[in-house]
Write a protein that binds this DNA or RNA. Structure first.
Lengths: 338, 338
DNA sequence: GTTGGCACTCCCGTCATGCGAGTGCCAGCT
DNA sequence: AGCTGGCACTCGCATGACGGGAGTGCCAAC
């Protein structure tokens, strides 16, 4: 059905259209890509490609542009990985040097990814299901307020304040030591069970202070850091000002909905390779003129999550995929090293 | 020079232009604003206003639009505070209920402000110069890594990991108790002095572990939370898609530069009232087609900082100013209560 | 299966035209 | 002295006509 030359024509159409933003015709195609056939031949091939739904004409007697199906075929079978430039390799291998904490790592990652892809980048915080509780800290702030800090072996720190009327320092200290002996070393799920049990047999003196603290800890254990995402490179949308309604606006709207972003990343990248979701393949109606290139990173032990970029379907997939893959690998390695 | 009626004409021009987005002519002005004079009279007034630089014609024989100077006069002398709607008052008085920590407060504030102004909102984290150190926690993570947590009386928690080869748990524990006895209750500045002194006379056994930890603590104390900002309501820029190059792009670019945002907020709102910076009054060239409405919030004791919104110079100043003021007051009160 | 030729389609930029909104000015009115 | 109605004038903008150009589909020939 589609012989080698037709595939080559499709490939040429995609690369040409991506870089020129203009529908591409048979003549310019032959000239620019050194095809060894005449424009007429290419036209015949294009007619077939159009019949099969890989390309369309925006209007009669204009050049062709790829459809989502065309991009899909391109990504699956035709795209040759474009090697990263030296500058990009260098940027990737140094961008995390000197990162100070998890927030910093996430921030640097999203900035790097945005910079080298020149798209909008999204990075999900790693889940750390394998972490155990390392320490619980209770600190009185005022007579009626205390701070509860939960430190995980992964280095995650969760903090909340709580109202405890008339809590005495000695009670807080006692509660602290009880909680630590009971909880340290437990996984979150085990800790939840243990806390529920504990709330039943607290000493009467501790009960008034302990019950709300335990309730708060249960809440904190339920919070999954991996539900956080960071976004960067939003100014890169300025490049697509001409497609304001199809690209810029939908992306801006999606970016403010963490839930949407998480579902997007989550669905895209269960597998280990770079995932591409093109136009209508996307589950969100408003994003049907955009593509997502995503990848999982990290390991289950160190925390696994996803990162990716969003841009118009007319996107340089080979470069973007290469960049996403490289960044995902590097962040994964960095997290593994500690 | 400018009698009452001319001021009224200017006011009518501003309000009309803000809501209609179209240059406004003498006839429609008289009709829509119930001025008790004829269009011809208004034309004479407009000629004077134009001479004085308060309004301009985009082209000959078009209506007039306000200049930055016109908006300035409007804001200073003509704007009557537009009372907030019931829905807005209710939103403001409940949006912080159930806020869980400082991040949550900031996040809710920026979302609220963006929602009621329908502009891009910026909120700066409060500085807490009056805070004292409440607790220092050292937790070994692996054989070569430890977590350092610094808890302030304000409820701020700062965390970092550090490489300490071959740190033994007993050393960490000893160091922890030393640091706590020495530091708790001190202000950041006093703590810095104390730490510098301490690093000189550490016991030899603690020196190898203690020196890097002290260095890290010094770094952590230098970090000022007030250098953080959160941004929200970016999708509201979609409303200005027609002014992509003058409004959307510059704002997107500015938003990714924390430094720019901080200077913007910082310069705008040292005083206690709502500050408005219109077009060219703005220190950043790229933002000269946009206005900033900002206000300080909080007190020095609870942490003082700024918040505001950015939008096109053609903005509903009375409503925006009312909203910014109301939100700033409410957040300030909330922080004061705890 | 490929190629050159040819008639056809349709987009897009340019130009001319007419309309409408708005202005400035002036003479007359209150 | 200030306000008003009238009037000629200026432009922007929408509309429509027009021509060039890029690109196509088809066909006959190689």
């Amino acid at each position: 059905m589609l012989d080698d030359r037709k595939l080559e024509v499709l490939k040429a159409i995609v690369t040409d259209y991506v870089s020129s933003k203009e529908p591409v015709g048979s003549k310019t195609l032959v000239e620019r890509h050194g095809l060894r056939v005449s424009p007429a031949t290419v036209r015949n091939d294009m007619a077939v490609l159009e019949e099969e739904g890989y390309i369309v004409q925006p209007h009669t007697s204009a050049g062709r542009i790829p459809t989502d199906k065309g991009y899909r075929l391109f990504v699956d079978r035709l795209a040759t990985v474009k090697p990263l430039s030296m500058a990009e390799r260098r940027a990737i291998s140094t961008f995390l040097a000197g990162a100070v904490d998890l927030d910093d790592i996430m921030g640097r990652t999203v900035r790097l990814l945005a910079q080298i892809t020149r798209q909008v980048a999204i990075v999900q915080y790693p889940a750390a299901p394998a972490a155990q509780i390392r320490h619980v800290e209770l600190v009185g702030l005022t007579a009626e307020r205390a701070l509860v800090v939960l430190i995980m072996s992964s280095g995650n720190v969760e903090q909340r304040t709580i109202e405890i009327p008339l809590a005495r320092d000695e009670h807080l200290a006692q509660l602290r030591s009880t909680l630590n002996t009971v909880l340290v070393g437990l996984s979150p799920t085990a800790a939840v069970d243990r806390l529920v049990a504990l709330s039943g047999d607290l000493e009467p003196t501790l009960r008034r202070v302990g019950t709300p603290v335990i309730a708060l800890l249960l809440e904190m254990l339920a919070v999954d850091a991996s539900e956080r995402v960071v976004v960067g490179g939003v100014p890169n949308l300025a490049r697509f000002g001409d497609q304001f309604d199809t690209t810029v606006r939908p992306v801006l709207e999606a970016l403010e909905e963490n839930v949407v972003l998480l579902r997007l990343l989550g669905e895209a990248s269960t597998a280990d390779e770079v995932t591409v979701r093109i136009g209508h393949e996307n589950p969100y109606e408003t994003l049907q003129a955009t593509s997502l290139v995503a990848s999982a990173y990290g390991t289950v032990a160190d925390g696994r999550a996803s990162l990716g970029v969003v841009g118009p379907t007319r996107m340089d997939y080979p470069s973007t995929m290469a960049a996403v893959r490289a960044v995902a690998r590097y962040v994964g390695r960095f997290l593994a090293e500690g």
